[in-house]
Simulated assay, not measured.
Amino acid sequence: MKRTHLPLNALRVFDAAARHLSFTRAADELAVTPAAVGQQIRALEDLLGVVLFRRTSKGLELTDEASSGLAPLRSGFLQFEEAVQAMQAGQSSHVLTIAAPREFLGAWLAPRLAAFRAENPQVRFVIVDGAANDFTEANLDLAVRWTEGPGDLEGVALGAPEWTELGEGERIVWPGDPDETGEGLGDSAAAIAVGDAGQALAMARAGLGKARVPSLLLPDGEGGTPEACRRGYWLVAPVPQWRQKKVRALVAALTER
């Protein structure tokens, strides 16, 4: 259903003028000039086709037409305030829903979430599958992705974009493999193809081949020398989620150097 365009600013001015029965005091409340209040009232009267105020020897008085609409108008403003409070409730909530790859959660993210919660005991986390891509459908606040950048989302890099080779023998490959040559799952020389970096890491540690894995997954000293690559772990979210106070606090904690 198409909604009627409402002159909300003029109605807000009318409400103030009706409460004070004075354009001057209404102007003081709204931080505008009395002339601006008068202009808004005249514009509203022209739009509605009614007179809202009459001047008497005692000052301003509401007309019957103005009085008849004042109560539902104020009720409407209260509902607007309730709507805004309801929409802001998500920002004040202490629950953060995060999508993260399982291997990254265990190796890097979980200890930092624990440290954050130790300082913010009211916080609760909901962790979902890192493959969750739809922020609305999964009701996500943040997601961690192994990617070349945030794309069309807001984001910040978590650590340096580096890979480390681990193990010996034939290649273990996985989707997102940081092999800059482009060789990967279709490489006939690869002995094992797995589904993610965590599986590649487990296979290499078991002695079943060598894998290139994100350096953040390894403790210091394990594997070869880290090398730069295009991809890295990024913390991302759409702009509305990124602007939430609770999200900003966690992002700041996770990116502290």
Rank of each mutant, 00 (worst) to 15 (best):
L6Y: 08
L8W: 13
L8E: 13
L11T: 00
L11V: 00
F14S: 05
D15Y: 10
A17C: 11
R19K: 03
S22C: 08
F23V: 12
F23E: 03
T24Q: 13
D28C: 08
P34M: 15
A35K: 11
A43N: 15
E45P: 05
E45D: 04
L47D: 03
V51C: 03
L52S: 04
R54L: 07
T56I: 00
D64F: 14
E65A: 13
E65F: 12
S67Q: 15
S68W: 14
L70V: 10
L73S: 04
S75K: 12
E82V: 09
A83D: 06
V84Q: 06
M87V: 10
A89Y: 04
S92H: 11
V95R: 13
V95C: 04
T97D: 14
T97G: 13
T97E: 02
A100C: 13
A100S: 14
A100I: 03
E103N: 09
G106M: 10
W108C: 11
A115G: 15
P121T: 11
V123R: 15
I127V: 15
D129W: 07
A131N: 08
A132Q: 15
N133V: 14
D134N: 11
T136H: 15
T136Q: 15
T136Y: 13
D141H: 14
R145Q: 10
T147H: 09
T147Q: 12
E148T: 14
G149Q: 15
P150D: 02
G159Q: 02
P161K: 10
T164N: 03
E168M: 09
R171F: 04
V173E: 04
P175D: 11
D177S: 06
P178Q: 02
D179F: 00
T181G: 11
G182P: 04
A190H: 12
I192W: 07
V194R: 05
V194S: 04
D196T: 01
G198A: 09
A200D: 14
L201Q: 12
A206C: 05
A206M: 14
G207N: 14
G207E: 11
G207L: 05
R212T: 12
L216S: 00
L216V: 03
P219T: 09
T225N: 01
P226H: 01
A228H: 01
C229G: 07
G232Y: 04
Y233N: 03
Y233C: 02
L235C: 10
A237G: 06
P238H: 06
P238F: 05
P238V: 04
Q241P: 00
K246C: 06
R248L: 09
R248G: 13
A249D: 14
A249I: 03
A252H: 11
A252E: 14
A252Y: 07
A253P: 01
E256T: 12
